[in-house]
Write a protein that binds this DNA or RNA. Sequence first.
DNA 1: GAACAACGTTCGTGTAGCGCGAACAATAAT
DNA 2: ATTATTGTTCGCGCTACACGAACGTTGTTC
Lengths: 278, 278
Amino acid sequence: MLVAEQKEGSGVRAADTVLAALEAVAWAREPIGVTQIAQAIGATKSAVFRHLQTLMERGYLTQDADSNRFRLGPKAFLIGHLAPPAWDVARILERPMRDLRDATGLATVLSTPSPRGALVVATFPGTHAIEIGVRPGSELALHASAQGKIFLAFGPPSLTDQVLAVSRQAFTDRTITNAAALREELSRVRMRGYAVAPEEALLGINALATPLRDHRDAVVGAVALVGSIQHLAPQPAPGLIDAVSRLAEEGSRLLGHGVTDRSPPGKRQNRPQDGTAS
Amino acid sequence: MLVAEQKEGSGVRAADTVLAALEAVAWAREPIGVTQIAQAIGATKSAVFRHLQTLMERGYLTQDADSNRFRLGPKAFLIGHLAPPAWDVARILERPMRDLRDATGLATVLSTPSPRGALVVATFPGTHAIEIGVRPGSELALHASAQGKIFLAFGPPSLTDQVLAVSRQAFTDRTITNAAALREELSRVRMRGYAVAPEEALLGINALATPLRDHRDAVVGAVALVGSIQHLAPQPAPGLIDAVSRLAEEGSRLLGHGVTDRSPPGKRQNRPQDGTAS
DNA sequence: GAACAACGTTCGTGTAGCGCGAACAATAAT
DNA sequence: ATTATTGTTCGCGCTACACGAACGTTGTTC
């Protein structure tokens, strides 16, 4: 074992497992049993069982009296509704996102940055016969999704370094795994102001994403269109780019971007970085 | 094995700690630091620190870039909004609860049963000069709160046994700690249909609660008025009782109570169990 | 109705991973 | 500068966790 290979090194194992179990229940749209949870998160039944007890004791889960299956409980609900309204972009953007979906027929996705990837917060599936969508809760790889590249391109450079430090998984043969190539792609994204990821996460699928900025100009999310490469070419139609950009701008405006922007320049969190010294 | 004596024995310590840390952040209405969290949940700084890393890795928390303080993250938001809409009673009852508060001037509280107590889901503080309220997230003792007694009186008998198995804490000298007296009080609650808890949790404060029932006739929550014993006597004014009862009935109706109530009697969740062999 | 399968739950064991306390670093306050 | 308080890291010892297998129960199949 030469390489440190820090995958999960800093965290607490039992704590990570309990959160994984919680998520397994959350992502399932119907009550789910111990065995399914165990194999979903790759742990043994007995371990999961004890963790589920912990979650029940604290009210995050409830166990159906006669089926012995688990569903989310009141504490989970409460925690989510105590979360800062900043994440309520989902609600704010619900209408315009649906409109964009209806106008383009493509799946519309709202993501937010998370250490493991671009967390899908809200989605509106496409309207074509072959429906393409993304499940809320999914975490899209930062290097292989349009949203992820947005976060890498406009987010803190430490995030990029983190991603470049470990080897990137190749989901398809179009996935950009080379570090230099990825850096180049990111500077291209910065120039264009939008990101695409043709067949980088899944063959036949492309995505087009633009950044959401808050009142402090920090990128806090991304809106994206996802669809077949038939409807969403590697070089998307200008109309689509405009539409997504407008949606992102509207969302940013609703987040306070551009208003009361009186923070003295240079006082932002834009630590000098390297200015893309590449 | 007569008594199970399960205080915290069955859970996983690290898992419990990480959830406690998550809650500490959630209940704080502003970003909070490691030290405060540690002493809030009674753990050492270093342990809490590692747990916070786990929570960040999974996106439940975000760390403010320059203050190093923690706030709830997107995953917490998402989990809460994936919770079954049953807990959305809070939203459904928002209007009527506010109306009741305005009509009575007393704090209106919505609670739901949880193993540790009556979990406060939503509150509207009273309107008197001396404001009395309950913080969302608080877990009121089952034996010393009006809401808790509702859950004991109308919930599964196993819950009552559980509470009676351990010694009850006396918050004031009015708190009912004696097992027989509590059983008696519960049957009184069942007869009346409402519960009060004059000065049982806090001197000078009383509460008046009625049960919320879902479509299967199970008690899934309680609405309560909380206020000074000046405004809320140990034997509350009939008008107040009526008002709370009406609110609870309206809430129950919104939860589907009374419609398609065709479940055969005796088929409910009253499994014989061992009948309290102790 | 017996045999089977699958599930939730319990139990014992070895070890690694956790909690602890103290040291270190970085900031803020005096 | 000095002090105090914070966030972060380190090393150690022991606990309390993950594992695997067994148990009890439910539901399914022929």
